[in-house]
């Protein structure tokens, strides 16, 4: 059948059209001059070299970047084990409550972020007032909405692995903890790596939850910083920050995608 050129052309146009603003923003991150709209050469000054205004040297920008990375790191370390535990626990659960648990697990994915943030704000200013707002609240918020993603990723891999391996190990006399550590976790490797990277990306990209859980200047993340500067008259350092964020998220998600498709366990006979 004749190949149509129209279809791919239209697709490309639509996609490029949607991405153009982002690409332009990145271009100006590398601008020599101060303008964010007129091309003025190429330089890394906004990232590194400019003594006062670059991301490295401007204290507000640098500390935002640092805080974002701290939040992401903590979220990764907590969400992945917790999510894996939940995925293992939900696996093959047919009894009462399994449907409810499934719904519970999906809830963060369908609830609008803002509603979730408002709810958490309410929680941390009343019942959990002893924790209050701040970094801890931010971490807890990030972990909670990342949890569902981890469960989805790990569960997908568990389905591929199948139960034979576990049962074989158990038959050979291995106690449950041993089975977990020596058999399941290594097989889950790619899924765990993909989860870590996904949680990382979700955390650094988040705006709403971090904003609502924040308690002051030292709990500012990069997206919050970007939001604050957007309406003002920022320098291309803002673009530089945006570019860094994009690169980090993209790299993390691309890696996660690659690992998630990692070498599948042999199909069950």
């Amino acid at each position: 059948m004749k190949r149509s050129r129209l279809l791919p052309a239209v697709t490309w146009i639509y996609v490029v059209w949607s991405l153009l603003p982002v690409l332009i923003a990145i271009r100006f991150a590398f601008n020599e001059g101060r303008s964010r709209t007129t091309g003025q050469g190429f330089s890394l000054r906004w990232f590194w070299t400019d003594p006062t205004l670059s991301v490295r040297n401007d204290p507000t920008l640098a500390s935002a970047l640092e805080h974002s990375l701290v939040l992401a790191g903590l979220s990764m370390v907590i969400a992945v084990p917790l999510g894996t535990a939940l995925a293992l626990g939900l696996q093959r659960w047919r009894g009462r409550g399994s449907g409810v648990s499934n719904v519970l697990m999906l809830l963060p994915l369908v609830t609008p972020e803002l509603v979730f943030a408002v709810g958490l704000f309410l929680l941390f200013t009343s019942a959990f007032g002893f924790i209050g707002l701040g970094t801890t609240a931010q971490v807890i918020g990030h972990v909670t909405f990342s949890l569902s993603w981890v469960v989805l990723i790990v569960r997908g891999r568990l389905v591929m692995i199948g139960r034979d391996v576990e049962e074989a190990a158990a038959d050979l006399g291995a106690p449950p903890w041993h089975v977990l550590r020596r058999v399941l976790l290594p097989l889950l490797g790619p899924a765990l790596a993909a989860s870590l990277l996904t949680v990382f990306a979700l955390s650094i990209d988040d705006f709403v939850v971090a904003q609502y859980m924040a308690s002051g200047a030292d709990t500012t993340t990069v997206p919050m910083r970007i939001y604050a500067s957007a309406r003002a008259a920022p320098t291309p350092a803002l673009n530089a920050l945006v570019t860094i964020m994009l690169v980090l998220s993209l790299a993390a998600l691309a890696l996660a995608w690659v690992l998630g498709r990692g070498r599948p366990v042999e199909p069950r006979a």
Binding site: S18, P21, A25, R36, I226, L246
Partner: peptide, 17 residues
Amino acid sequence: LPFAVSPVIVGVALILF
């Protein structure tokens, strides 16, 4: 790609454009 981009950045990019 849109999954990898923070919504705030989407907004900023649109303003820049």
